[in-house]
Design a protein around this nucleic acid. Structure first.
Ligand code: NAD
Ligand code: NAD
Lengths: 219, 219
DNA sequence: CGATAGTCGTTAAAGATTTCACATACTTGG
DNA sequence: CCAAGTATGTGAAATCTTTAACGACTATCG
């Protein structure tokens, strides 16, 4: 739709949903205005970074005043396409998949898991968190134009399912399996690797002692 | 312990567990050697980046040959402290917490969830995934020197629990709640925000069309 | 044993992101 | 309506990260 703002840095883009959520909180609390400094304390992002981020979208604030919460919120709602709901499919209704289905991503969020698939006959036909679980054999026919998938199958099945998703026309996959899947270059895959996140935290604790310098999260 | 290699870039440090896992896979498959190019295809990280990453630790490979899998693996095992197990506590045995407890982080991994806490009387006293669930009121006394915590409580409880964890001497928190918690500067918090990851993926799909340029994951 | 192909480690360049710092312009209270 | 205070938006610098390119060295094959 808009082809103008293609030069927003990826780092900025990743922070937008975070800003959006906190602006929502402020709005709910009845706050009318907010400064980059206040927002900085809430989201733990440097205030200069916040101002820079916002400035990619133009002059959203007012000097000497800050930002109007309502205006900023409605601006980001449009920018993040919060008005239209993105339909999502989830593949693999196991431990992790069940947790996601039971969680209501719609709160503050424009994404909705509409359908789930699993290979386990006992799961198929049940409803988890209000979402029907279909058999994986019917993936292609039941996907119905959904373009985003959450992948929570065993890692051994990941590549096979990814191939089928791609053939079925998916454009984005949120991959929770430890497998690094290969897809055509026009399909976007984001990996969330929980075991690695935990290991990385442990590594940082041992090798990057925090203090004076190296502040990341502070009181 | 080692105070020499403090200058390893954070970006590199985050990739180490990933390398370690894939080296383990290769080792299991009986591979004796691997080149940065091969590894690159497996982990989807540019081969120059891999060589650069490894080079921070010295000359681990051999020109014209590549890397010896066994040697590299044992080197990273030491570097990542895979020999000693890191004990972890989990707070909040709900949807997400239960999924983690049922997952065995020990596979390829030096971290083990040893104890869990919840406020819900029905949960307390049960065992989930082989881990005892204790009452949150006993957090301080039962934590027993554990220094890493996974936080999967409702966001409204996050800051309160974090404060108690800090007082109890925790040094790292993996925070899955949408709340941005405040802790003293010597405590490390990593946020994993699943709703944001999903929103960000959707945003990227709409605003950063992949193709020729901008390749990230390809066949 | 020499030629060829392969691969590392690294220098240097490019690219991305964060942070500083301040001119500018708005707000507010008197 | 002015003066003091406040907070933006951004040029420039600093920092961090990735990528390209290639000299040096190894393995291997004929
Ligand atoms: N649970 C965790 O805490 C955790 C942590 C880190 C990584 N992971 C990764 O997330 C993934 C899911 O983990 P989990 O604990 O939920 O596993 P799980 O075994 O509980 O669930 C996997 C589900 O996928 C289904 N399945 C298997 N093959 C399938 C196929 N071909 N098509 C469709 N469905 C299929 C299974 O029936 C099962 O319901 C795994 O790859 C795991 O490594 C999980
Ligand atoms: N489930 C998901 O897919 C998902 C996705 C994104 C974010 N999250 C976030 O992760 C967190 C956990 O999500 P969930 O779905 O597992 O929620 P949940 O409600 O299923 O689980 C929360 C658990 O914490 C316990 N609890 C509540 N107050 C507590 C306290 N003071 N001390 C100890 N335990 C307490 C509850 O008894 C419950 O068992 C939430 O903050 C949620 O926003 C979850």
């Amino acid at each position: 739709m808009d082809i103008e703002q293609t030069k927003i840095p990826q780092a900025t883009a990743k922070r937008l949903p975070l800003y959006y959520r906190f602006l929502n909180n402020l709005h709910t609390q009845g706050k009318l205005r907010v400064s980059s400094k206040e927002l900085s304390e809430a989201v733990k992002v440097d205030s200069a970074t916040i101002r820079r981020d916002f400035s990619y979208f133009g002059a959203l604030g007012k000097k000497g005043y800050g930002y109007n919460v309502e205006y900023l919120l409605s601006f980001f709602r449009k920018t993040l396409d919060q008005d239209e709901t993105t339909r999502v499919a989830l593949i693999g209704v196991g431990n992790l998949g069940t947790a996601f289905l039971n969680y209501n991503f719609m709160k503050n969020n424009n994404t909705k898991i509409e359908i789930a698939f699993d290979a386990n006959e006992e799961r198929v036909g049940t409803e988890v968190g209000g979402v029907d679980v279909e058999h994986i054999d019917h993936l292609e026919e039941k996907l119905g134009g959904i373009s985003v998938a959450i992948l929570t199958v065993p890692s051994s099945a990941a590549q096979g399912i990814a191939d089928r998703l791609v053939k079925a026309g998916i454009s984005g996959i949120l991959n929770f399996t430890p497998a690094r899947i290969s897809v055509p270059s026009d399909v976007r895959v984001h990996h969330i690797d929980l075991a690695i996140e935990l290991q990385a935290l442990v590594y940082f604790l041992k090798h990057y002692p925090l203090d004076e310098e190296n502040i990341e999260e502070e009181e």
